[in-house]
Computed example of a mutant assay.
Amino acid sequence: MRVILDTQNCQAYGNCMLTAPDVFDLDEEAGTAIILRERPPAELRAAVEEAVRSCPVQALTLED
């Protein structure tokens, strides 16, 4: 699994960071989310999938 962030769409709502803090953080200077682990381990899959679903601007996608 690979996490992809569309920084052009990201509005830094922080839902991803709250849902999967081991994978996402916020770059307050840039005003976007950042990916801490582009290829998170399988045990974080459920949290990452929830983070992708919770993004209000659909800036996150998963690639297998």
Rank of each mutant, 00 (worst) to 15 (best):
residue 15 N to G: 01
residue 15 N to R: 09
residue 48 V to I: 10
residue 15 N to M: 08
residue 60 L to V: 08
residue 24 F to R: 08
residue 58 Q to N: 14
residue 17 M to R: 09
residue 30 A to V: 11
residue 26 L to C: 03
residue 6 D to P: 07
residue 24 F to I: 07
residue 64 D to R: 14
residue 35 I to S: 03
residue 16 C to Q: 01
residue 40 P to A: 01
residue 8 Q to W: 04
residue 45 R to C: 00
residue 10 C to N: 07
residue 4 I to P: 06
residue 30 A to I: 11
residue 8 Q to T: 15
residue 59 A to P: 06
residue 20 A to I: 07
residue 28 E to L: 14
residue 6 D to T: 05
residue 60 L to D: 07
residue 19 T to N: 13
residue 30 A to W: 09
residue 48 V to H: 04
residue 37 R to H: 02
residue 15 N to V: 01
residue 32 T to D: 08
residue 35 I to P: 04
residue 18 L to C: 05
residue 47 A to L: 10
residue 18 L to S: 10
residue 45 R to G: 00
residue 6 D to M: 06
residue 1 M to Q: 10
residue 22 D to I: 01
residue 9 N to T: 12
residue 58 Q to V: 09
residue 53 R to D: 09
residue 22 D to Q: 14
residue 5 L to S: 13
residue 46 A to F: 02
residue 47 A to M: 07
residue 16 C to H: 04
residue 34 I to N: 04
residue 2 R to N: 12
residue 42 A to I: 01
residue 63 E to R: 14
residue 9 N to H: 06
residue 49 E to P: 07
residue 24 F to H: 09
residue 3 V to G: 05
residue 8 Q to K: 15
residue 54 S to K: 03
residue 1 M to V: 11
residue 3 V to T: 07
residue 21 P to N: 12
residue 62 L to Y: 03
residue 34 I to W: 05
residue 55 C to F: 03
residue 8 Q to S: 13
residue 54 S to G: 02
residue 62 L to I: 14
residue 17 M to Y: 05
residue 7 T to C: 05
residue 47 A to I: 04
residue 36 L to A: 01
